[in-house]
């Protein structure tokens, strides 16, 4: 069984700060990590490999520095890694990104058929959840999104059964390979890198593909040119015109504070008073 896992290197959003005066993003010193949602996809792929045997190939599209994300994935146990990098990819939106990734996966398929493609449910920087479905459509693969559990895989029968998170319930779905699975978070935990895998990851000859190596001929489909969406502006949220009315009482007694805020609120928001009265 051959599983391709698509990962992305992202800035650790928990550590992004906005400059208080200029309202610009302060990128300096923000560490780059593997998109946390992708780790659930990689771990799920590694578990299938442990169970059924096979090969796990990780790919990423990004700047040359994204090599670090691939080496990390190798240290967890991935067999091979491909960095898809080209200046021509710059400015790609999700449509252009799915075109480039799908082309690269077709190139991979020429050497070894691909049974499944795994991705995280979304990235933490873009938060769109659009690239997975896009890649599936372009490769004409069955699409299984928000998969919470892989129930069974029968490679010889080319059959997979999964649980898919739906609104208000779970769908139990059966489909045929090849398919693309976006893996829901929280149902597994990334293993620790083993010492042999860490050594292997450091020495592994990483494949680096530019657009030609990824099989891309039509450059109007990639990068900025291939992106229908355009960012027209980026801005900080405007503060509300009025700040909170601060409740201060002379006594400083919390009981007086509580009574003051309630009486002010019930006067200004009869709807809240009505809501609370319902509960009496």
């Amino acid at each position: 069984m051959h599983i391709v896992v698509c990962i992305k290197q992202v800035p650790d959003s928990a550590q992004i700060r906005v400059h208080p005066v200029t309202n610009t993003i302060m990128r300096q010193g923000v560490p780059a990590i593997i998109n946390p949602y992708d780790l659930f996809a990689l771990e799920e792929a590694l578990r299938l490999k442990d169970k059924y045997g096979g090969t796990v190939t990780v790919i990423t599209m990004g700047p040359p520095q994204a090599e670090a994300a691939l080496r990390k994935a190798l240290s967890f146990g991935a067999d091979d890694a491909i960095l898809i990098t080209d200046r021509a990819f710059a400015g790609a939106d999700t449509l252009a990104t799915s075109f480039a990734l799908a082309s690269a996966i077709r190139q991979i398929q020429k050497n070894m058929p691909v049974d499944m493609v795994f991705t995280g449910k979304q990235t933490i920087d873009g938060d769109t959840a659009q690239v997975g479905p896009g890649v599936a459509k372009r490769l004409d693969m069955q699409l299984l999104t928000y998969v919470s559990k892989i129930v069974s895989v029968k490679a010889e029968a080319s059959e997979i059964v999964v649980e898919r998170r739906a609104e208000g319930g779970v769908q139990l779905l059966k489909t045929s390979l090849p398919c693309l699975v976006t893996v829901l978070e929280g149902n597994n935990q990334m293993r620790f890198a083993s010492m042999p895998n860490m050594f292997r990851a450091a020495r592994h000859p990483l494949k680096v593909w530019d657009k030609d190596a990824a099989g891309i001929e039509d450059i109007t489909k990639i990068g900025l040119k291939g992106s229908p969406t355009v960012v027209s502006k980026v801005f900080a949220p405007t503060p509300k015109s009025e700040r909170a009315e601060m409740i201060e009482v002379e006594s400083g007694d919390p009981r007086d504070v509580a009574i003051t805020v309630l009486s002010k609120m019930f006067t200004r928001f009869p709807v809240v008073e009505k809501e609370i009265a319902k509960r009496a």
């Binding site: 959003s13 700060r17 027209s232």
Partner: peptide, 15 residues
Amino acid sequence: PTFGGSLLCTIVTLN
């Protein structure tokens, strides 16, 4: 929202 919810951006699809 963009950049993990720290800023907002406006996006258009022109042609």
